[in-house]
């Protein structure tokens, strides 16, 4: 079992795991991150989503060996990622929350909240590419990727509100 080096939320980490271990189990069990969740293990729901080099990926089916040398961002890493994108000095960056997370609070999106990791990751990917998306573009984003992003609690309409709010917050550079 060889050591694998990957960059998670800006930090280089070395893990001892078989290369075919899905990234999700490495993130949760070895690195003790709690953002990505196990929803299906089948790439069908999005609960486990992370950003790999800025693109949303399903960590439940992604062998850890495939992300060696790549940049993995989890929910925990969104605030620092935002600060980096703003090129803010550390003192001025609000380290607590990414605008997407703030919008999720403002709009009181979560019901149980179990799916929301993937929803916020997907929203972040979208807003990086399309800063002011239309409702149709937002819907398309959550239908795209390996599968539609699923929420059993039916928070979809709250998510539509929150993505639009996040877009405004980001335009303000907050």
């Amino acid at each position: 079992m060889a050591g694998i080096t990957l960059t998670v939320n800006g930090t280089r980490r070395e893990v001892q795991a078989p290369g075919d271990t899905p990234l999700l189990y490495v993130l949760r069990n070895d690195l003790e991150l709690s953002g990505p969740q196990f929803g299906c293990g089948l790439s069908q729901c999005g609960a486990c989503s992370v950003l790999v080099d800025g693109k949303e990926a399903r960590s439940c089916v992604l062998p850890v060996s495939r992300v060696a040398g790549k940049e993995v961002t989890t929910l925990e890493g969104l605030p620092a990622r935002w600060a980096g994108q703003q090129a803010l000095p550390a003192s001025e960056a609000d380290p607590a929350l990414h605008p997407v997370q703030q919008a999720w609070i403002d709009e009181q999106v979560p019901q149980c909240g179990f799916c929301q990791n993937g929803m916020m990751i997907k929203a972040t990917e979208l807003l990086d590419e399309v800063p002011a998306p239309t409702v149709a573009q937002i819907k398309d984003a959550f239908m795209s990727g390996a599968s539609p992003h699923l929420c059993r609690c039916g928070s979809y309409s709250a998510i539509l509100d929150a993505v639009q709010r996040a877009s405004i917050l980001m335009a303000k550079g907050r």
Partner: peptide, 21 residues
């Protein structure tokens, strides 16, 4: 009133049942 648990859930600070070790 807002839900006091929401901030911890959206910022990965909540201890979920999936996190119990």
């Amino acid at each position: 009133f807002p839900n006091a648990v929401t901030p911890s859930k959206v910022s990965a600070k909540e201890v979920w049942v999936t996190d119990v070790r």
